[in-house]
Design a protein around this nucleic acid. Structure first.
Lengths: 222, 222
DNA sequence: GCGGGCGTAGTACCTGGGTACGACGGGGAA
DNA sequence: TTCCCCGTCGTACCCAGGTACTACGCCCGC
């Protein structure tokens, strides 16, 4: 019997997963979590074989939750199932230690097959992603020892901590004057930082920087 | 017995809905459609009491499908169930003739209650939407009281189609000059539109407008 | 010790963006 | 028909933002 934990912030989605899984006589759902923190807690309590993990969840997201569960040494396998077939997500997710990555528009049978695969130690990736993922991997091969906690997007990787911090508040919609005031800086300093951010990321102006911040999940939609 | 048709492009979502509905002894699912065209065809064939209609579907979307089904004089009631709680969608959907609008992160019980409500001729709107929808409606009503300047509006609901279009491309990072060129407009016209967008949304500048666009899913991360 | 990255700060300059107007044609609603 | 919304375009003005450059203290690695 394969035990499964469902982590998704949408009740209907969880319901669908639960019904599907419970309809199989070799699977059982041992819990449901609506965010990453809850998922970690329930994994710690129930030690499920597989976690169906959504990425977009309030608070702690699925990627980070995956990272922590894997880092904690749990034998639980993570199968990421998300709405968006973004290669960057897949990449981050697999780097975080997930055993698989499927998109929600997969057929129910595919999902069941995926659960069984990761439960038995295999890895699965949505067919629509395989190619791009492979390309991404090849591209990232030369980089062997990635320092720091989270490398994230290539373009953001070159930013310093301070620059990432500045970019984050730009993504909050703050003006240079506000940034200077709230971060206790001179406005000229803020401009210097922003100039470097734009140069490093290739963004033309703060608007494109904000878009980049959203696209790379540096900031997330409210 | 209430007969229901499910129209959603995601198989797993359909599965969840079907399981939920079939678990009720006063409901039965008479068909599933994965796009608007198919939904229209199946409504014509089965004449269901209620259609659970998703908005985002390939080809003919849920709004247009709703419009055509209602226009065809079918006694079928449409209950729009979508991922995004955008007032503009709700507004469009209800204008198109839908009897209700719920978001997918609703509790299953809410959804069942919604189906029963529209089947019996009532209208339902997700609680999270009611207030904004009301604001939008009030704005479209003939003014009787003190008109005044009223510079501020709730959110995207008050935007015209053109303004929403402009906001979308701002969210792509385009400059005013680029917008003017690619949309075959004068830059002054672009500025006029943007000025109105900022006034209506309450955003201070285009950066905050972009943030709003992302937060409301008008534009989605790449 | 020395170079270099980082964070800080300044000056000078120029451009894009936003504001505040006014104006006009078309089309739908009263 | 009349009125008003919408989309269009224009001019003038001001300022936040971005560029370009220099500079200094700190800390780290070599």
């Amino acid at each position: 019997m394969t035990t499964v934990l469902i982590a998704d912030d949408q009740p209907m989605q969880r319901f669908g997963f639960r019904m599907l899984l419970e309809s199989q006589d070799d699977m059982t759902v041992v819990g449901e979590a609506s965010n990453g923190t809850e998922a970690i807690r329930l994994v710690d309590r129930h030690h499920p074989d597989v976690v169906l993990m959504d990425i977009r969840m309030p608070g702690l997201d699925g990627i980070e939750a995956t990272r922590r569960i894997v880092a904690a040494g749990a034998r639980t396998r993570i199968l990421i199932v998300t709405t968006f077939d973004l290669d960057e997500y897949a990449y981050d997710g697999l780097r975080a230690g997930a055993s698989g990555f499927l998109v929600k528009d997969a057929q129910p049978e595919e999902l069941l097959a995926g659960v069984r695969a990761v439960a038995s130690g295999d890895a699965v990736v949505a067919p629509s992603l395989t190619r791009r993922l492979l390309d991404a991997y090849i591209h990232h091969l030369p980089e062997s020892g990635a320092p720091g906690p989270s490398p994230e997007d290539a373009r953001l990787g070159a930013l310093t901590d301070r620059e990432r911090e500045i970019l984050t508040v730009i993504g909050q919609g703050w003006t240079n004057a506000e940034i200077a005031e709230r971060l206790h800086l001179a406005e000229s300093t803020v401009k210097t930082h922003i100039g470097r951010i734009l140069a490093k990321t290739g963004a033309r102006d703060r608007v494109q920087a904000v878009i980049l911040a959203y696209d790379t999940q540096l900031v997330t939609p409210a």
